[in-house]
Nucleic acid binder design. Structure first.
Length: 436
RNA sequence: GACCCGUUCGUCUAAUGGUUAGGACUCCGCCCUUUCACGGCGGCAAUAGGGGUUCAAAUCCCCUACGGGUUGCCA
């Protein structure tokens, strides 16, 4: 078998059940599977485990698809695009399950119990070779710990363990990367593969993602839903970057990766054993790092999603805050003063200016000087002149001016502010501030 | 309870027997800057505890503690 042939046999999958929104844990599981497939030139399969009719919703299904798409994880086979091993919704695969169940019956591996069918485990020591956890053994001779499992319910439906194994085998999945919560399920799945006389896939169990307080992150926790990240002003590439670094390390000191770079650098060997906590501060920092290299146009475009209605002259303003925000959601507030003539003053900014007793006099002098100015491009020079007149440093005037013009302690460069506001409006704002 | 996995700065992590235990986020200080940032430099801060093995242990072994997972006719 040639190396190329081996590579093309790599098949990974993401198998969500559409019972809730795509959460970061699931997204990271999908990501590792996707990265491995893309790196090795294999296929990434999306299979929807929609056997739980009670809890499935169309909204959840859509949220999962949208979430994967937003993150840029494209799949080669799935319910929407089909593929050689479909259908890709478990709800449509009943006949396939019946066939494999019959196989189990023929071999005498199942028996009826209260109307349900149980799979008879082989009573032996089960040892698995996990790519991340190493060799793990669970003693199936200990029957009380490992009672025969139901594979077919009394209502005729099949349970997760059974359909999951059948699908992985039918879909020729080569590598299963899944959460550590499945580690104890793996011997059950291995026994099923053995009963089917099929070689099992290679397993890799990744540690779970925890909340800041150490509890398991579940769907209802804040920051758990992938959909929230776009709303919160994250670039999808930044979220992918951060998620990849949660539990995986490139073993060097680089931290900022594009998806393409991740595909190159990823390896299962670099995946940790211990669970990681989700740190929103660092996630925001990663986002800032992804925001910084964008062109002003790309930044403006990306931040447009944060407005219900785009302010006038938006393009001109957007670039001036690019390096001042970590999240795109901070953009509307950061540029509010540009288009809102009655913007509010931030209390802490006013407080800071109040410490400078000379500020009002300085501002007044500047406003007068600006009033007689014929060329607005010289406005900045007048700041220095006004300061000199009061025997003050320019910095003592610039901060109060910033607050007078924008109402905030931080924000765009003063030059940008002056240029966009213009002479008349700038003077008016100083007067408005002095009249407080 | 039983079984399984884990434990390095507050957080994400590097170091697979020999390092002053490294980097990043956060925080603090300094520099750059007429403002705000960016950036640069520096600081605080960790091998859960106890026993072994070894010339030498974050690293290997055992015990304890703590955390997580599994233990369904959920997935």
């Amino acid at each position: 078998m040639s190396f190329d042939h081996y590579m093309s046999d790599i098949r990974t999958r993401f198998a969500p059940s559409p019972t809730g929104y795509l959460h970061v844990g699931g997204a990271r599981t999908a990501l590792f599977n996707w990265l491995l497939a893309r790196q090795l030139g294999g296929k990434f399969v999306l299979r929807v485990e929609d056997t739980d009719q009670e809890r499935n919703t169309e909204a959840a299904r859509k949220a999962i698809f949208d979430g994967l798409q937003w993150l840029g994880m494209d799949w080669d086979e799935g319910p929407d695009c089909g593929g050689e091993y479909g259908p890709y919704n478990q709800s449509e695969r009943g006949a396939i399950y019946d066939r494999w169940f019959a196989h189990l019956q023929e071999k005498g591996r199942v028996y009826e119990d209260d109307g349900a069918w149980r799979f008879r485990f082989e009573r032996k020591l089960m040892t698995m070779h996990d790519l991340i956890c190493g060799e793990v053994s669970i003693d199936y001779r200990e029957e009380s710990n490992t009672p025969d499992m139901v594979v077919k319910r009394s209502d005729g439906s099949y349970v997760f363990h059974f359909v999951n194994v059948v699908d992985d085998l039918e879909m020729k999945i080569s590598h299963v990367i899944r959460g550590e919560d499945h580690l104890m399920n793996t011997p059950k799945h291995l026994q099923l593969f053995e009963a089917f006389d099929v070689k099992p896939p290679i397993y890799a169990h990744i540690p779970l993602i925890l909340n800041q307080d150490g509890s398991k992150m579940s769907k209802r926790d804040a920051g758990a839903a992938v959909g929230e990240y776009e709303q919160a002003g994250y670039l999808s590439g930044a979220v992918v970057n951060f998620l990849a670094l949660l539990g995986w390390s490139p073993k060097n000191e680089d931290e900022i990766y594009s998806p393409a770079e991740l595909i190159k650098a990823f390896s299962l060997e670099g995946v940790n054993r211990s669970p990681a906590k989700f740190d929103t501060e660092k996630c925001a920092w990663v986002n800032q790092q992804h925001l910084a290299p964008l062109s002003p146009e790309a930044f403006a475009k990306a931040s447009e999603t944060q407005f219900e209605q785009l302010p006038e002259n938006y393009q001109a303003m957007a670039g001036s805050v690019q390096e001042k925000v970590r999240l795109l959601s901070e953009v509307p507030a950061a540029i509010q003063f540009y288009h809102d003539k009655e913007f509010p003053y931030a209390p802490e900014a006013l407080e800071k200016v109040a410490k400078n007793a000379a500020a009002p006099a300085l501002l007044n002098t500047l406003a007068e000087a600006w009033g007689t100015l014929t060329d607005w491009s010289e406005a900045k020079g007048e700041i220095k002149a006004a300061a000199v007149k009061h025997e003050a440093k320019p910095g003592q005037l610039m901060f109060p001016l910033r607050v007078a013009l924008s109402g905030k302690a931080g924000g765009p460069d003063l030059g940008d502010i002056l240029q966009i506001l213009g002479q008349e409006e700038s003077i008016r704002r100083i007067q408005r501030y002095l009249a407080l």
